Simulated assay, not measured.
Amino acid sequence: MNTAYWIVAGLLALFYLYSGAMKVSRNRDQLRPMMAWVDRIALPAVRALGTVEILGALGLILPPLTGIAPVLATAAAIGFVLLQAGAIAVHLTGEDRQITLNLGLIATAAATTWLATGL
């Protein structure tokens, strides 16, 4: 189960590190082709969301790796489930309505939550 956690959590962390770094470092015009919703959200909120994604990714990896407060990995995974639930709401209220990736991320974060309980 430990190996499964590291595979799933590692892939999820990589995704959120990349996604968060893009939201923190790129401007609205650079984000728009990948994220149609950025025009409906204030740029400081997009930056804050990116910061939350980066911190959550670190929360999936660092606590189990160091052995310090490994319960934080479970909290980070639950946070990603909630984050994607909110993302689905944003997509459904907008024009893009593409939620396939969000559903996949919810499933992955839910699996990570379950696997993190066995750490």
Score class of each variant (00 low, 15 high):
G79W: 02
P33R: 00
A89V: 15
L49Y: 09
A76V: 03
V38L: 07
A69L: 14
W37Q: 10
L65G: 09
A69G: 01
V71S: 10
A110G: 05
G118W: 11
P70V: 14
T117M: 10
L11R: 10
I68K: 09
Y5K: 02
Q84A: 11
D29R: 11
I88F: 05
I88Y: 05
G20Y: 04
L62A: 14
A13I: 01
I99M: 06
L12S: 04
A89T: 12
D39S: 07
A107R: 03
T51N: 15
T112S: 01
T51M: 15
D29L: 14
L119G: 07
L83T: 00
L12W: 11
V38I: 08
V90D: 12
W6F: 06
A48C: 11
I54C: 02
R28V: 08
I41P: 07
R40H: 09
A4F: 13
L119E: 09
A45Q: 07
I106F: 09
L101G: 15
Y18C: 11
A116Q: 04
P63T: 01
V24C: 15
L31T: 05
H91Q: 14
V8T: 14
T93H: 15
R47F: 06
Y16G: 05
L65R: 07
T112N: 00
G94W: 00
G86N: 08
R40Y: 10
L11P: 05
A116K: 02
W6I: 00
L14M: 14
L65V: 12
P44T: 00
V38E: 08
D96W: 12
T100F: 12
W114Y: 09
R26P: 02
M34Q: 12
D96T: 13
W37V: 09
L12I: 05
E53Q: 14
Y16P: 04
A110W: 02
G104W: 00
R26K: 14
I88M: 08
V24M: 15
I106C: 04
I106N: 06
A9I: 07
L105D: 07
G104T: 01
G94K: 00
V38T: 06
I7Q: 11
P70E: 13
A77Q: 03
L12D: 13
L119V: 08
A116W: 03
S25F: 12
V38R: 08
L49R: 11
F15W: 15
P33E: 04
D96Y: 07
L17H: 06
S19K: 08
A109M: 01
D29T: 10
G10T: 03
A45I: 06
L92V: 09
D39V: 00
A107M: 07
L119P: 13
A48W: 10
D29Y: 09
R47Q: 11
Y5A: 01
L115H: 01
T66C: 07
I7R: 14
L101H: 12
W37S: 10
A89F: 12
S19D: 15
G50I: 01
A77W: 01
V52Q: 13
W37E: 15
V38S: 10
G56I: 00
L103T: 03
M22P: 05
R97V: 03
P70D: 12
V81L: 06
T117E: 02
G10L: 04
V81R: 08
V71Q: 15
L58H: 03
A4R: 10
A89P: 09
G59F: 11
